[in-house]
Every structure is written in C-alpha cells, then in structure tokens.
Amino acid sequence: MVLSVTEKLYLYDSLTSVPSVRPDGRKPHQFRPIEIYTDFLPSSNGSSRIIASDGSECIVSVEGKVVDHTAEGELIHVEIDIAGQRDDSPEVESLTSLLKKVLEPRGGIDVSKLRLTKRYSFKLFIDVLVISSCSSPISLISMAIYTALNTTYLPKLVSSFDDLEVEELPTFHDYDLEKLDLSPPVVFVAAVVGDNILMDAAASESEVSNNGLVITWSHGKVVAPIRSVGLSGSGAKGFSFGVLQKAIKMVEDHAPEVLQALNNS
C-alpha cells in the first residue's frame, strides 16, 4: 500500500520521536513474528521455510556434493531466485554478491569443517527462493539460510582421511548421518529514520526511512560486511557515525536472543 504525503509525514514524525512510536507498537529492536519449518524437502540435505507476519516468504535448500578441493575454487555456492525478477536483475545480483561475501571463509563459514580427506571435501549448494517480499528480503534470506544449515545432515565418512597416495573416492556409512555444525552468520537490516534505528522495518517504515544498514553477526560479534542499503524508493540519505554506532550496539545487544530463537525453532 502506497502512503500519501500526509501519511508519510505523520509516520516519519512518529518514528523520529524519542522514543520512536512504531505503527504496530513494537520496540525499536523487536522483530515481527515468523513461522519456521525445517527438513521438509526430502531430496535436500537441509531445508528451511520462513514466513513473516506480513506475508513475506522464503525457502532455502542445501545440498552437499563431494568434490576435489585441490581443484575446486569454492566450497559454498549460493543461488538466489526472486519471484517476478530476472536472474540478472540488479537486486538479485546485489543480494547474491552480498551473501557470498557474508558466507566466505574469512568471516563466515569455517569451510575446514567440510573437509573429508586430504583431497576431498563437501561442496554446499545453497538455493534460495524468495516467493514474496514486502520489504528488503536480506534478513529473511539470511535467517532461512541459517536455519537450513543448522538442520543439514551429511553422510558419515568411513574411509581413511589420508588419501593422497591412493586413487579412491571417499566412502560413507549406508545409514549414519552427521549434523553439519558450521555456525553460519546472520545478516540484520536496520532502518535509519532520523537519528533512530529500527530493526525488521515493515514496508511502511522502509518507505519513510532515510537509509538502511546491513550488519553481519558471526561467532558472537559484528563482522564485515557492514554497508548501507537504500530501503525507500527515494534512495538513501547520509547519516552520522553516531547512528552507525547505535545500530551496531543494537545488534550486539539483541543478536544472541534472535539466534537463540532461531536455534529453538
């Protein structure tokens, strides 16, 4: 629903007040309710489906494949599809680039946990489908990837780890599976409205926001990438360093609670 000029001004004044007054009564750090379903795709090693209260919906599938890591360039491959958008659209390419950076080994996933032998590793193919999205889908996608990876099981290796001298593929137990423990990062999107920070902004809140901040949480701390992102159709405006500090502090204070809720889903 597109807001009129009067409605935008009223909402903007409400959100920039101290304390901010959100239309649904939420606190600045509070997320809307979400539904999470896992392990529902039988052909995948891990899967997750997240439905937000505004109707936004995202599905993630994780599949593992054995590759020769001495010849393979990457062990994490992310593919994003957004309903109604081309694969080469700016939003899809931007989201794919961001998530690849989030999940890269330096600050995200520890790919050494994918190592099978001295020559072979599992390669993870993470396929994301955004069925609908009323605002920026970055955080929704990130949470879906997090829950999918946390429910991913891969076959248990039974052959030798030291395989450099022999020409054989790894062999696995017929039935036994091991849970993949990667501790994946989560991306939070904060809307900047005046000098206030709002987590999980609704579509109307995004429409009047001055800017947006993408903040990555990994292994108990804020890590790169941290970047601005335009949430409203009018583009992004500048903000002070103090606003950035406030957003980082909000993520540091509340990210553990969000991850605990995701882990208990």
Rank of each mutant, 00 (worst) to 15 (best):
S4L: 08
S234L: 11
G230I: 01
K123V: 13
H29W: 15
A203L: 06
N211L: 09
T70P: 00
S89C: 10
G235Q: 06
F40E: 06
R22N: 07
S4C: 06
V102I: 15
L140K: 02
L169A: 14
M1N: 01
K156L: 13
D253G: 12
I36R: 05
F241T: 14
G25M: 09
E7K: 10
I76P: 06
K101E: 13
M199C: 05
I59D: 04
S112G: 08
S232Q: 01
V229C: 04
Q85S: 08
R32K: 14
T38D: 04
S133Y: 00
N196D: 02
L157D: 00
V62P: 01
I145R: 07
P19G: 04
G220A: 04
P225K: 12
S135I: 02
A236D: 10
S132F: 02
A71D: 03
A83I: 00
G64E: 07
E91R: 09
T16P: 00
Q85K: 10
K27G: 03
E57P: 05
G233W: 00
V67A: 07
T117S: 13
T6G: 05
Q85P: 06
V78I: 15
L157T: 07
H69L: 08
R106G: 00
Y120W: 07
V2P: 02
V186A: 12
E57H: 09
F241E: 15
Y153I: 05
I197P: 08
S232F: 00
T96M: 05
L231C: 02
S133K: 01
T152H: 12
Y146N: 04
F161R: 11
V92A: 10
S218N: 08
L129W: 06
K8C: 14
H173P: 05
L169T: 08
Y10L: 13
F239H: 14
A202L: 10
G238E: 13
K8P: 04
L182T: 11
S159M: 11
D81K: 09
V130Q: 01
C134F: 01
G194R: 07
D13G: 01
V192H: 01
K179H: 08
C134Q: 11
Q30K: 10
V78P: 03
G55K: 04
P170F: 06
I126H: 09
L180W: 08
S44A: 15
L154I: 15
N211A: 15
S53K: 10
K118H: 13
I50M: 11
T38S: 12
I36N: 07
D81Q: 09
P42F: 11
F161C: 12
L114Q: 09
T117C: 06
I226S: 04
V251Q: 09
S121T: 03
V189N: 07
S89V: 04
S136K: 02
S265L: 05
R49I: 01
I82N: 00
D253K: 15
S132G: 05
V258S: 06
A52H: 03
E72Y: 01
R106I: 08
N45L: 12
A203W: 00
V130L: 03
R86E: 09
S160P: 03
S234F: 12
H69R: 10
R227P: 00
K237R: 15
C134T: 10
